[in-house]
């Protein structure tokens, strides 16, 4: 039985191909650098922009998108609580972004076949952060700035600077899946 627990791996964004190839399902990863937030409506707008051949608000190449809609920042903080939201709501949009160079996504819950296939084909990784650990995760965010779709409020695209942001690899580029593996191991 392969061990699911490993030492934490530190990676920085944008993600190099070498790093992506080295990441395996079940790896505990600490991300540092810039990541971008986007959820439902922002995804729809990004994919519409690609369809209409418009310029995107940020270059997707090598980047990570974090599926989150934070609480408002209190006066003494850079951001409010910011945990992952359910990723499957982004399934119909993610493949188009992966095709454009997106290399990582952070969310919670399983992804659809179309996303898993795109991740394998274009070499991208899906990470999970712990759902409901939003206060803890917010402490790893050092800067936050709205860069697009400000009208969407909490759903706007934010550029976050993160330091040792804790995630775990769910889907690697080799087609492995932590949720399936974990369930199989502990089912009675």
């Amino acid at each position: 039985m392969p061990k699911l627990i490993k030492k934490e791996i530190r990676i920085t964004t944008p993600l190099a191909d070498k790093v992506i190839k080295s990441l395996k399902t079940g790896d505990k990863v600490l991300i540092s650098g810039i990541i971008y937030t986007a959820r439902d409506v922002a995804h729809k707008r990004l994919v519409d922009a690609i369809k209409d051949k418009e310029k995107l608000p940020f270059n997707l190449k090598g980047q990570i998108i974090y599926f989150t809609g934070p609480t408002p920042a209190p006066p003494d903080k850079v951001i409010g609580s910011a945990g992952p939201t359910t990723s499957s709501r982004m399934d119909s949009f993610s493949p188009a972004l992966i095709k454009k160079g997106l290399k990582g996504m952070i969310g919670k819950g399983p992804r659809g076949k179309e996303v898993v296939d795109a991740m394998k084909k274009y070499k991208a990784v899906y990470f999970a952060a712990v759902g409901g650990a939003a206060a803890l995760l917010s402490k790893r965010i050092k800067k936050s700035e709205v860069i697009a779709y400000e009208d969407l409020g909490t759903e706007a695209i934010r550029r976050l600077e993160v330091e040792d942001f804790p995630v775990i690899v769910v889907n690697d580029i080799y087609g492995d899946d932590l949720y399936l593996k974990g369930m199989k191991r502990y089912a009675m």
Binding site: T71, S81, G83, A134, A135
Partner: peptide, 14 residues
């Protein structure tokens, strides 16, 4: 997470 939320008056979940 619950402890951080309580100490810093941050929501437990976003």
């Amino acid at each position: 997470n619950a402890e951080i939320a309580r100490n810093e008056s941050l929501p437990v979940c976003q």
